[in-house]
Nucleic acid binder design. Structure first.
Lengths: 121, 121
DNA sequence: TCCCATAGTTCGGAATTTCGGAACTATCGG
DNA sequence: CCGATAGTTCCGAAATTCCGAACTATGGGA
């Protein structure tokens, strides 16, 4: 199985990042990773509230996040651990991620839906 | 013809904004509107460098930007003038737009492509 | 007034992308 | 070696996007 390649930070493209995070589910996954520090794909499944996400879709969401350069995935035995690349991305595109995450967080308060980012409970 | 409805600022959703700006062409159009202050659709066509964008696609791009709440469009005679809603959006989602625009601008320097945002010439 | 040119929208089919079930692979614990 | 768990791949269906062609609306003449 492939060693899960990640793009070097200088190859990151804003449109890929925006596209990755324009999906509320992916945004929620990413927010979760940042909250918790590290997450394996399967546990993210249950973490998204009421919504049940098929494994194959979930796998694809992680792939999109990884290829956008937002997360780093490492195999540990049978599972994959995903870490955010926040610091790198922040250095490359200052203010981008914080603006996006804050936007989702403030939106969650006014109109809660499937993507419940940064919700207290 | 419809009076070109715009969503009230409290209805804006982050995912719609990210989706709208995850297309480099739309991002370039939006950046152009902010640079120049106001733009009518047709002139944006030539403004995007080498790329020729069909009228119907352009019309759709403006629609996406409008429905995301990023621009305000008014008919003036035969043409439509598009203004950015930057101030409103910035008040609603602080730091979101500046982060995105800066990201594209810094990317343009390192890897120029179809979307030439904030390029001097 | 009628006609034309300009600016933009709508329609509809082709191309692309996304979704997700089923089958597959990889790894760990017995 | 076997079964269970974690995840990927494959591929057809559904949704989206793209864009040419036809259409609509407005202003400016003649």
């Amino acid at each position: 199985m492939r060693p899960l390649s990640h793009p070097p930070i200088e190859d990151l493209r804003p449109e890929a990042i925006l596209h990755a995070l324009s999906d509320p589910i992916r945004a929620a996954i990413f927010a979760k990773i940042m909250q918790v520090g590290c997450v394996e794909a399967c546990s993210a499944l249950s973490a998204l509230g009421d919504r049940v996400i098929p494994k194959s879709s979930l796998s694809n969401h992680f792939k999109v996040l990884r290829e956008a350069g937002l997360i780093r995935s490492e195999r540990h035995g049978v599972e994959v651990r995903n870490h955010s690349r926040w610091a790198e991305v922040e250095a490359r595109f200052p203010g981008l991620l914080s603006g996006i995450i804050n936007a989702y967080a403030s939106d969650a308060g006014s109109a809660p839906r499937a993507a419940e980012m940064a919700r207290p409970a």
